[in-house]
Design a protein around this nucleic acid. Structure first.
Lengths: 113, 113
DNA sequence: GGTATACTTAGTGACATGGCTAAGCATGAT
DNA sequence: ATCATGCTTAGCCATGTCACTAAGTATACC
């Protein structure tokens, strides 16, 4: 149990910060340069840069440098592992509810005897 | 933009640790006591307790004490905000793809003239 | 060349996180 | 009453996170 799942850990960690989620939402609408992303946050550039590296290391964004401008773009597939995890959780949960349901049903049958 | 969303931040933070995800997966199968949850992790009780408080503060689990045993149970609805956020992201992304599609379509029409 | 722009790197500081041990407290069993 | 069990609290330590400033590098413009 609890096998290392660096992907998921990095993903969830990256998303646990409101600034990073805001940046991601902005990027969902289309690519943007670093300064452009920094502006609405009210944070200094180096700080924003760190947020961007966290997002990039989690695979959520990809960046390319053209001239002196670094362009950042979202990588929408990166959210897939999270969706998968969510679905797995729900599956376990629902399987449990089914078993519970069977259990109660059998209990009722026993009682009815 | 970037409105405070303490719920989501706490949620993602709680899920960013493999131990906590493992505990959650275990709880998805049914309630368990603290010692029972600690056993497969190989961690000491106080450490596991901290993980449990993080999960509880994020609203992911609920606990009740009966006698000297504390029973922990999952709160599956707690994952809803995450699912909502995921869907929102996808919506923004897809709207953008649609706009891009329109743009390209118009471009083709212009060219065809 | 010289200056402005757009990052980038390095270093600092306050605080959070995740692990531990040691000791405390409440409950159940004998 | 005593002892074992199951948490719980308090406190320590190493590391990580998130913000900053200051200074550096690389490209674009005049």
């Amino acid at each position: 149990m609890a096998k290392h799942d660096p992907d998921l850990s990095a993903l969830f960690h990256a998303l646990s910060d409101p600034t990073r989620r805001a940046i991601l939402s902005r990027l969902a609408e289309g690519p943007a340069a670093v300064t452009e992303l920094a502006e609405p946050t009210g944070l200094r550039l180096p700080t924003v840069m760190r947020h961007l590296s966290v997002l990039e290391e989690a695979g959520l964004i990809a960046t390319t440098k053209e001239g002196r401008v670094r362009s950042c773009a979202m990588v929408p597939e990166a959210l897939a592992p999270m969706r998968t995890w969510l679905d797995e959780q729900r599956a376990i949960w629902e399987a449990r509810l089914d078993r519970l349901d069977d259990y109660v049903t059998n209990l009722m049958k026993e009682r009815a005897k």
